[in-house]
Design a protein around this nucleic acid. Structure first.
Lengths: 127, 127
DNA sequence: CGAACCTTGACACAACTGTGGTAAGGTTGT
DNA sequence: ACAACCTTACCACAGTTGTGTCAAGGTTCG
């Protein structure tokens, strides 16, 4: 008897039965099924569910965020395209005149302030 | 001049000015600013914005999804933790032994216990 | 067999996302 | 100096996420 039903799994993982179904729906777990269709959570799944809880709490992530990470990992083309886009990142002006430099410095200050406020916002409003 | 204002940038990229500000807010672009604080979009940013459009359309992504990918890339700890979780996919009970996940979990044992008790509290209070 | 579990589906709801406005006020360039 | 831009900050609103509850019906197992 190394496989629990959904309510038992809920008890030991801290998720509600409802959320276990939801987490399965978005593709983060796929428990096996009994002949009659009952979900059966093995030790691996239980541990995974507990760790998921920790992962979300530690990094202020949502389930959907983890689902995105999983997509990135599974769909090779996606990962490549996103990676390419992100890599073309903060290109600063090619012509570096004195004025440009000054402006860049100012921008940097503004950016730091913006980042600070944005971060605060995210912390307070993040799920 | 090779830097456009927000409305001009909107014209050539297909985004609305409103969305350009939004995209900046969620951290996907950071256009420079003029002395007076006007956003100034250089050729690099314009290209990036057009490519972003393609990226979203081609892969059925949302802006928030790309933002998550960016977080994954920038926050080293996050990247590692998410990767670890995704990698621990419990494929068929026979293929992944209990020792595997147990060992992987060992350095986080204390936190798991804490999470479990917290969770129990939440369940009993039944929010 | 029958109590106690499970399944999917639907309605509900707060909080966040993506998008559009509008208002009050500062910047730019001719 | 002045029209035409820009800025932030707020209101609005449909769609999604995360979560609960309930209903009608199938499964498990003593």
């Amino acid at each position: 008897m190394d496989a629990l039903t959904i309510h038992e799994a809920a008890q030991t993982t801290g998720w509600s039965p409802r959320m276990l179904r939801y987490i399965e729906r978005i593709g983060l777990i796929e428990p096996q099924r009994s002949e009659g269709g009952y979900r059966m959570f093995g030790p691996g799944e239980l541990q995974r569910l507990r760790t998921l809880r920790e992962l979300l709490a530690e990094h202020e992530l949502g389930l959907a965020d983890v689902a995105v990470a999983q997509r990135l990992r599974r769909e090779a083309g996606l990962q490549a395209d996103v990676e390419a886009w992100l890599q073309a990142e903060p290109r600063r002006p090619e012509t570096v005149s004195a004025n440009d430099w000054l402006r860049w410095e100012q921008h940097k200050h503004a950016r730091l302030l913006a980042a600070a406020t944005t971060t605060t916002d995210m912390e307070t409003t993040k799920r």
